[in-house]
């Protein structure tokens, strides 16, 4: 399946050139968007995603959907990257070392079950 807008965004993250969409009022959002979800402004520009983010919350999922059968248990987290928040699977960091405030970078890996691209958070030093 092709998801125009989203696929290009994920590919840019994989290339280390991640971006978000900014409206004139400074709200951040992620593509595909034609207007700002926070204020409705139609003028959106691509801005560089900050190199690191901070984990705001996370969960270790033990009962997965079939698409994550071979990943479980896995840690899904929400992390803030400047004006946007991203949701991804934490890799290369044991679950008991994940905490609120942990600094991470964002990348793209493969879902072990489906082989599809997966947004991941990796440990990062400030």
């Amino acid at each position: 399946m092709t998801d125009t807008g989203y696929d290009e965004w994920l590919a840019a993250i994989a290339d280390g050139e991640g971006y978000y969409l900014a409206c004139p009022d400074g709200h951040g959002s992620l593509p595909p968007r034609r207007s700002c979800p926070h204020c409705g402004a139609a003028e959106l520009t691509e801005e560089p995603l900050p190199a690191t983010g901070e984990i705001l919350t996370f969960t270790e999922v033990h009962v997965p959907a079939p698409d994550f059968a071979d990943e479980a248990p896995y840690v899904t987290a929400i992390a803030s990257f400047g004006p946007v928040k991203l949701t991804g699977v934490v890799r290369d960091l044991p679950a008991d070392e994940v905490d609120l405030g942990t600094t991470v970078s964002v990348g793209v890996d493969e879902n072990a079950t489906t082989g599809e691209s997966l947004l991941v958070f990796l440990p990062a030093s400030e």
């Binding site: 989203y6 992620l30 919350t57 997965p64 990943e71 991804g88 699977v89 879902n111």
Partner: peptide, 24 residues
Amino acid sequence: ELFEVRAGVTFPGAYALMARAYFD
């Protein structure tokens, strides 16, 4: 679907994300 389900969010998982944020 694009931003949560593909990142492994289940429904208990979504509530778990909120629960941990709530505890904090």
